[in-house]
């Protein structure tokens, strides 16, 4: 059975098959069944200090700077964070509570009971080899509404957590390495 190796975090313990595994992260498994969850994620290496990266995930305003046009966060009650996903027809609001907050290592949120979507979001940081900076791994496990069909529909529209997470990490990398987010726009907005 695959153990919880911090270098290869699995689907938060969800849906692991009882068999010998290779060393690949669980989310890359050739299966669509993670115990009813969809498990997606992405790793990028950022030439920045882990503490700086971790701070980015503690501040809703800084988090919003990397989330793109379909997704934003809003402060919730207490230390809760509300994730707002804009679909073509409406907004899906998911209130989450922090479940891990280890400076320079990990930040994670889980949806509260009764939330519209059952989801766990985790960001893990680890030192990259050869002075390359910090490996930042974002990992999302969620139960899509309408099951696998709902997941595939979201993927087709580019608003699934995999695309959102991947693009957010790329924007974070741009921002921390260059001080700006690349754009081909020739003129300022407005």
């Amino acid at each position: 059975m695959r153990q919880h190796d911090p270098a290869h975090p699995q689907a938060m313990g969800q849906g692991e098959a009882e068999q010998d595994h290779d060393s690949a992260p669980g989310r890359t498994a050739r299966t669509l069944d993670f115990g009813g969850y969809q498990v997606v994620g992405r790793t990028v290496t950022i030439a920045a200090d882990p503490a700086l990266i971790h701070d980015h995930f503690r501040d809703p305003a800084r988090l919003n700077a990397i989330l793109g046009s379909h997704l934003r966060v809003e402060p919730g009650a207490g230390d809760h964070l509300v994730w707002v996903l804009a679909t073509s027809s409406r907004e899906i609001r998911v209130e989450t509570a922090p479940v891990h907050d280890r400076p320079g290592e990990m930040r994670a949120w889980r949806s509260v009971e009764g939330a519209e979507l059952d989801v766990e979001i985790k960001v893990q940081l680890r030192e990259a080899p050869a002075g390359r900076g910090t490996e930042v791994e974002a990992h999302v496990a969620y139960r899509p509404k309408w099951g696998l069909a709902g997941h595939l529909a979201a993927r087709l529209r580019g608003i699934d957590p995999k695309a959102q997470g991947r693009q957010a990490l790329k924007r974070l990398k741009m921002l921390l390495e260059t001080g700006e987010i690349a754009t081909a726009r020739n003129r300022r907005a407005g």
Binding site: Q167, M174, A182
Partner: peptide
């Protein structure tokens, strides 16, 4: 360069 192609067109 990893950072010069905008995210939307990188994809």
């Amino acid at each position: 360069c990893d950072n010069s192609n905008p995210v939307e067109t990188q994809e």
